[in-house]
Structures are given as C-alpha cells and as structure tokens.
Design a protein around this nucleic acid. Structure first.
Lengths: 134, 134
DNA sequence: CTGCATGCTCTAGCCACCAGAGGATCAAGC
DNA sequence: GCTTGATCCTCTGGTGGCTAGAGCATGCAG
C-alpha cells in the first residue's frame, strides 16, 4: 500500500510537482499508472528514481548524462565504464568552472575593495569595467 | 572616419554579430545609424560600450545589472552607490557559487576515486547517486 | 561578371524547469 | 448535504543569454 499521488511524491523527494511531470515528459521517469480520475499513481520505486535524479542534478549532471546513468542503474549487468567517464567529465567540468570563478572573484574583490563614495565618474567599478584601469 | 560595419565591430570587440543585434534589441546598445542600404553603421564609442558589456558579462554580471552599470557610466554626475552594491552582490553570488561547486567537487572526487572496473551493479558512481552509500 | 562574403529580418531552439490559465475533482469541516 | 480550499489535470508561454537557420538583398574581389 505505497500508492502516492504526485503531490506526495513531490514532497517525498523534495521536488516540485511540475518538475515530476517534466521528467515524465522527457522520459526520465516512466509513465505511472493512472487512477480512474486520471490522476497519476506512484509506487515506492518512483521515489528512489526521483531521488537519484535529484541528487545527480544537484551534482550538476546534465539530463542526458542522468539518462545514461539511470540506464546503467536499470541494467546492473552492463559494464559501468560509461558511468565512470560521465563522472570524470562532470568532475573536470566542475573543476574548470571553479577555476574560472576564482579568477572572477579575484577581479571582483579588487573592484569592491576600492569602492568609491563619490560620483560615478570616480567609480572604481565602472572604471574597471571600462577597461581604462587595469 | 571611424565608421564600422557590424562585422568590424564584432571583430573589434571580439563578440559575435548576432550578439550585437541582440544587445541592440534589448536596449543595451543604442540603435546605430543606418547606411542607404539599411546596414548598421557604428562609431568608435560603440566599441567601448560593447567592450564594457563584454567585460561585465565575463565577470558574470546579469544583463539587468549591466543595464544599471551602463546607466551610471552614461551619467557620471550620479552617485555610484548602485555600482558598489551591484559589484558586491555579484561578488557574493560568485563566492557562494564557488562554495557550492567545491562541495560538489569533493563528492565527485570521492565517486571517481573509487571507480569500478566491473559491472554497473558494483558501480560506486551509481551507488552514490542512489543514496545507498554515504 | 561571377561567386562568395556579408548584411538584413524573422523565427525557433537551447537547458531545466516554473508560472499561470482554465477546468475537474477530492477531502474536510459545518 | 454543502461549501471551501487544496490538489489534480493539460496546455501554453516565460526565464536568461544568446545561437542557428531560413530566405533574401547587397557588396566586394578576382
């Protein structure tokens, strides 16, 4: 007796209701059974699958990567090389994003550190963006 | 004699041509003069303005923030408090993004470090995402 | 003068959803 | 039994910041 409405499922996995319908639409979640009144009826496995997706999204995996990962999770007899590759790619993507953001942080800190109290004509922020100062 | 076609302007500021038209459409760049053949004709200030926008975008400022910053740059007699606030907000946004990505990096590193050579059923990556392991 | 590069406008697509319209249905309190 | 508010349904359109392409006119080099 673990039948869940879409709302209960949403709460169980801490995901918004439209997001569930969206995942169903793009084929990440299977189409659930429907009650007589046309409402979606979910079972326990749907909670696990949705939690999997949510966790992967939080880690920044793109939907297509998650599709592959779910495919592997569904077929445990298959080799998992793909999963390793996907995780490594995601790690590299995250690392390069961090490096980029750290550079931005440095420049922003310099801009903010010498913030002006006067008029825009003397504004360090605008000056920096204009490229007139290093 | 500093008249530029849209293509030249694009090269001068290292920006794609459609991007310039897009910025014009949303009002970040003023509508330029038109030649008899209806082509856009730019002057030197357009290069500076576009470079300003490009630099700000590289720093991750959203378009609306850039609109405000450009407004201040256009009106140097105005107080620049807004510019400081915008820069500080952007700095905070970047810092929180970095913190978040560092957490992701840690988890991804753990996943990748113990990558499996076997089947998906033993896959550390999938296991981690399933939440069955810490 | 031929052919390719560049320009024009307009529309649609990307990603991963979120918001809202307009309507049906359910559950709880009186 | 009735009302009220929450939840559900489908469908459409919006977000941000561009990018790609269609279909056409024009410019420039060999």
């Amino acid at each position: 007796m673990s039948a869940l409405s879409i709302g209960k499922l949403a709460k169980a996995a801490d995901v918004k209701v439209p997001t569930i319908r969206f995942y169903e639409q793009i084929g990440l979640l299977p189409e659930p059974a429907r009650a007589d009144n046309d409402r979606r009826v979910y079972e326990a496995p749907a909670v696990r699958r949705l939690a999997f997706i949510k966790h992967a999204r939080q880690l920044g995996f793109p939907i297509e990567a998650i599709r592959t990962l779910l495919d592997l999770a569904d077929n445990p007899e298959r080799a998992c090389d793909d999963a390793n590759i996907i995780a490594q790619e995601q790690l590299m993507a995250v690392e390069s994003k961090i490096a980029q953001l750290e550079a931005l942080r440095a420049e922003l800190r310099r801009m903010v550190a010498t913030g002006c109290q006067g008029f825009a004509s003397d504004c360090r922020v605008i000056e920096t963006l204009s490229g007139s100062a290093s």
